[in-house]
Design a protein around this nucleic acid. Sequence first.
DNA 1: TCAAAAGTGTTTAGTTTACACCCATGC
DNA 2: GCATGGGTGTAAACTAAACACTTTTGA
Lengths: 246, 246
Amino acid sequence: MENQKERISSPFCPYVSVDCVLLGINEDKLSVLLVERKLLENNAVGYKLPGSLIYETEELDDAALRVMKEAVGYTQMSLRQFHTFGSVARTANKEDILWLEKESHTKVTRIVTVVYLALSKKGKTVNNLDKNETMRWFPVEDLPDLPFDHKSIVEESVNEIRNWVEREPAIIYEYLPSKFTAFQLRRTYEIIYNKKFDVRNFQKKMNLLGYIVPTDEMEVGVPHRAARYYRFNKVKYNKLRSSLNK
Amino acid sequence: MENQKERISSPFCPYVSVDCVLLGINEDKLSVLLVERKLLENNAVGYKLPGSLIYETEELDDAALRVMKEAVGYTQMSLRQFHTFGSVARTANKEDILWLEKESHTKVTRIVTVVYLALSKKGKTVNNLDKNETMRWFPVEDLPDLPFDHKSIVEESVNEIRNWVEREPAIIYEYLPSKFTAFQLRRTYEIIYNKKFDVRNFQKKMNLLGYIVPTDEMEVGVPHRAARYYRFNKVKYNKLRSSLNK
DNA sequence: TCAAAAGTGTTTAGTTTACACCCATGC
DNA sequence: GCATGGGTGTAAACTAAACACTTTTGA
């Protein structure tokens, strides 16, 4: 205890950053958005999660929103804190430190990063990047080498997103467009859970939920029977959820 | 983006602490362990969550374990990271800042705190405190005034512990002694979920689980029919769980 | 013999799973 | 007319919920 107090007398302040794991579906694969990391006069040295150190008077949540705004140009998504990674070993790789010190013009030792997680908006254009930067979707099953511990962060995020969908299915509908077909919804679940669902049972359950309402609109121009469009009714959803506290 | 880089050039380093929410059951109520906070020559000014700033080369998880070791004297518990609270407004209260600056002998502006959550070991003595400090269990439904945002941290933790128990029932058995009666198990669930469970259905389910095994031992000296003791079988538990990924 | 808690089964309702065929459309 | 995906129902298996009495023990 004495020892503790002594050490606390000269407290240690690490850097604090936020990193964002934006998951989406590309070519029927669960994918994550990564930005290119450049070093030495724009020679690309691989990809990383979009992220930033936080500002002095900036909330953590706001920092994450800022990072997303800068990356994909919009923030209407369930962006939520997931986990904080602060391992001393995170900065074990010399190259990562070099890059970071060049970026921040500061001597950097340890960085505690608060990771945020979200599902992207389906099909929304991702085009708000700095001219010098590029980004790409990578299937989570086929990631490139990543700096720091970004690889394990992504892997843990994929597990977590399933828990989120189970606890709060509404986030699925932030991913989907406001009108969607039963097939789109089912496919989304299949990709997130990485397993098949029976068509009939899925449809039946979807109808029972009560907050997915059919519209009069149908697909047009498809080379097969046109599918009906459905909408997510948030008011019904909230009512149904809030009465489950019996 | 330019703006961002500029601000990052002079990065901001907040203090980083860990706080621990240790939940337990006292007098049949879900309770949280709080330590007394002293100021001005040992005048107590209320209670707070046990916590500490982190050391330069200390892992976050290790800092949380250290805080628990110092507080309750043991660390055999499912102590896991829960959420990081970093609001600028956390340090809005002048009195909190005064206390903190006295404790740390440093000018403190913002603190980002990583909160850890655990169930205490049932009945284990809590006695490893600094002579000058005292601690107490408070029912979570009846908390005293707490500094910073500790009150809402506790409230969120109570919800979270239920999610944890659902996802990983094993943590219940770290709370219970190695031999426990069906009644103890049921009562524990009832208090954590704050609702009653049907005795017969509970017993039936308990037997079906497969990882709660009866022993030959019975209670002694009780003024009523003696209850059987059961044990949690971790090997069976892990086997049963790992095959659910079908 | 009484008070106090332990232990035990059955019925009903609800939920989940498995499974196969016809329908509408564009080409 | 054929390829493509949309849409539908039923039976069986399983899970969850409701519900009351007898047993054991100490005082």
